[in-house]
Design a protein around this nucleic acid. Structure first.
Lengths: 150, 150
DNA sequence: TGTAAGGCTTCCCATCATGGGAAGGTCAAG
DNA sequence: CTTGACCTTCCCATGATGGGAAGCCTTACA
């Protein structure tokens, strides 16, 4: 199986397969005389594993760790679970962050006429001017605002 | 005001201020004889605008558009609202995507013993083997899976 | 058997927003 | 006048992916 076929069988682009090889995630079974990469079922299986991990939002670094654990028959499931849990927490943190943005934006959008006139609470907020009621959207404890620690 | 002071006043790093200048988002009021950038209150205001837009998840490209609209006194609020709405939709799409991942991962994590034994449903799922009940987590209509269109 | 199309190889570049760091000039305080 | 902090520009790195060029190889067809 050459790289194009492996790509078709795994759903991973040839470009990415080469990249994964470059960063040490996967190696072809070998090379033909003319230097073509050769893959077998096992490699395709690994590629699918990577693809699935990526689709669950794991980074390539996390994926690499998971891959090693997968291939390590003596791993403990707790090691795997810990990675997953950390990733879940990370996802949930990012979700909450974006939800805060959405909340603020929806509020501003709701207050914005969206008509032909130029006055716009959205721009006013961005500019730090909140004419209505003299306060920002989501005053004080705005969850979309990670500035304090930055 | 030099770049360090503008950075302190706006909360935008000096590095980023230079970058924003490079991509045409903001220019200093002028330069000193010794080539130092000089900023005034107006520039700091723009920097805060950018920062606020970024904290709401707008890309720099969107931010640039918003900035132009802000400075265009004859803009319509509908033009601004449209950008905001598009951005809200984008955020919500991404949130849903990540929520799908979380849902799947939580299910898998829940099924995983997290003990000293090697058998792990999380790895089984990644490997495409679902021993329990013979099905993948979130069978069929798995929302964490954008593969179909890719 | 010759040729054309398409697949493979490597290498470089771009994205997006941000930070790190080096080399060298400048300013202000001691 | 020195020293340290700040400024300048320039280059590089991140993470994951894609685009494309130049050149070799394979396959299918006439």
């Amino acid at each position: 199986m050459n790289i194009g076929e492996a790509s078709g069988a795994s759903g991973v682009s040839a470009k990415m397969i080469r990249y994964y090889e470059q960063i040490g995630l996967i190696a072809p079974k070998g090379r033909t005389e003319s230097n073509y990469r050769v893959y077998g079922e096992e490699e395709v299986h690994v590629l699918r594993f990577i693809k699935r991990a990526r689709s669950l939002g794991f980074s390539l670094e996390e994926t690499e760790t998971l891959l090693k654990l997968w291939q390590d028959k003596s791993r403990t499931s707790s090691a795997v679970k810990e990675i997953a849990t950390t990733h879940i927490n990370d996802l949930e943190r990012r979700i909450a962050e974006m939800q805060g943005m959405v909340k603020t934006l929806k509020h501003l959008s709701h207050c914005c006429g969206g008509d032909n006139r130029p006055d716009c609470p959205i721009l006013d907020d961005l500019a730090g001017e909140s004419p209505a009621k003299g306060e920002r959207a989501a005053p004080g404890k705005n969850p979309a605002n990670g500035e304090s620690a930055a």
